[in-house]
Amino acid sequence: MSASHSHSPAPQDASHDNHGAHDQAAEAAHIAAHLGAYIKVGVGLLVLTGITVGLSYVDFGSRSMNIIVGMIVATIKASMVAAIFMHLKGEKMTIWRFLIMTGIFAMGLFFLTFLAHSDPITGTSYSTH
């Protein structure tokens, strides 16, 4: 048993060794340059939160219009969090690929259940209460 341990393959970790002090310093400098952006985005999110609250007391003509406006602002905020805080901007393709799929399926879940509520061909709409 123990013999086979010592003969186990070295993991394919090419980058492990050359991850030296130089790389680390370069990365640190790169991150230091981003600190301002994090604060700016954070402040932007706080401002947009205020705007969301404010807009919800403005009459856009109908409740559904208000919902649409509110959701647009929320989506902008969510994109800011995802893009900057979660580093999705510039993230690797592997992650983007399955996140796009996830987005498509989540939308499918939203819209198809939504469509199931009414049928324009027969003119029926299904209310649950």
Binding site: M101, F105, G108, L112, L115, A116, D119, P120, I121, T124
Partner: peptide, 23 residues
């Protein structure tokens, strides 16, 4: 991919409407 957008064929009997059923 497609397996995510076929689920309601289990629900034809719920009377969910021709449009959705056709999809």
């Amino acid at each position: 991919f497609l397996s995510f957008i076929v689920w309601a064929h289990h629900m034809y009997m719920t009377g969910m409407g021709a449009k959705v059923a056709a999809f």
